[in-house]
Simulated assay, not measured.
Amino acid sequence: MTSPFLKVDAISLTLKNEPILKNVSFEAYPGEVVGIVGRNGSGKSMLFKCIAGLIIPQQGEIWVGNFAVVRERRFPPHLGALIEKPGFIGSLSAYENLKILASIQGKIGDAEILEALRIVGS
């Protein structure tokens, strides 16, 4: 059986004495599309911030691949995330913005950036 690439197990998050996430659990498998739906203020963005290790829940565990996000208390390697509003710098070109993002982990270079821009027609 295929292992999940994402596992959220019984996470709970309270901020300023306000419960945001209560015992949230789910798994996502390779090739699967998962939709997270809910009204404004229901905790969707906070869930994604927890998955990305930007906020650590008080209870539960999150695994991205074999990486234990809650235990490690940091952003999982090999994960990319745009949560809420993307922070592109308007005064820079698409290439320059992508170059800055690529420099964070240093895994792709100019050739890959240029190919991505070619694919999307920029």
Rank of each mutant, 00 (worst) to 15 (best):
M1H: 14
T2C: 08
T2E: 14
P4C: 13
F5W: 14
L6Q: 03
K7F: 00
K7M: 02
K7D: 07
V8T: 07
V8Q: 05
D9V: 02
D9F: 03
D9H: 15
A10W: 01
I11R: 11
I11V: 15
I11W: 07
L13I: 14
L15Y: 04
K16N: 13
K16I: 05
N17S: 14
N17I: 01
N17L: 04
E18R: 09
E18Q: 10
P19V: 03
F26M: 00
E27F: 04
E27P: 05
Y29K: 12
P30M: 01
E32G: 04
V33I: 08
V33T: 08
I36M: 01
I36D: 07
I36Y: 00
G38L: 04
G41W: 01
K44V: 01
K44P: 02
S45V: 04
S45N: 11
S45E: 05
S45C: 07
L47Y: 00
L47F: 01
F48E: 00
K49I: 07
C50T: 06
A52V: 10
A52F: 09
L54S: 06
I55A: 06
I55F: 06
I56E: 14
I56G: 11
P57A: 15
Q59A: 10
G60Q: 06
E61T: 12
V64R: 05
V64G: 08
G65I: 09
G65D: 12
G65F: 04
G65Y: 03
G65P: 08
N66L: 13
F67R: 10
A68M: 02
V69N: 12
V69W: 05
R71P: 01
R71Q: 12
E72F: 08
E72Q: 13
F75K: 11
P76H: 15
P77H: 14
P77D: 15
P77S: 15
H78D: 10
H78S: 04
L79N: 07
L79D: 00
G80N: 09
L82A: 15
L82Y: 12
I83M: 00
I83T: 04
I83R: 00
E84Y: 03
E84Q: 07
K85H: 06
K85G: 08
G87P: 03
F88A: 09
I89E: 06
I89Q: 05
G90N: 13
G90Q: 13
G90K: 12
S91W: 12
L92V: 03
L92E: 08
L92P: 06
S93Y: 07
A94D: 03
Y95W: 15
E96I: 01
E96Q: 13
L98G: 05
K99W: 09
I100W: 11
I100A: 09
A102R: 05
A102S: 12
S103F: 11
I104N: 07
I104P: 10
Q105N: 14
K107N: 15
K107Y: 12
I108M: 10
G109V: 06
D110T: 08
A111C: 02
E112W: 01
E112V: 00
I113R: 12
I113Y: 07
L114S: 07
L114V: 00
E115N: 10
L117R: 05
R118A: 12
G121S: 11
G121Y: 06
G121L: 12
S122M: 08
S122W: 06
S122L: 08
S122G: 07
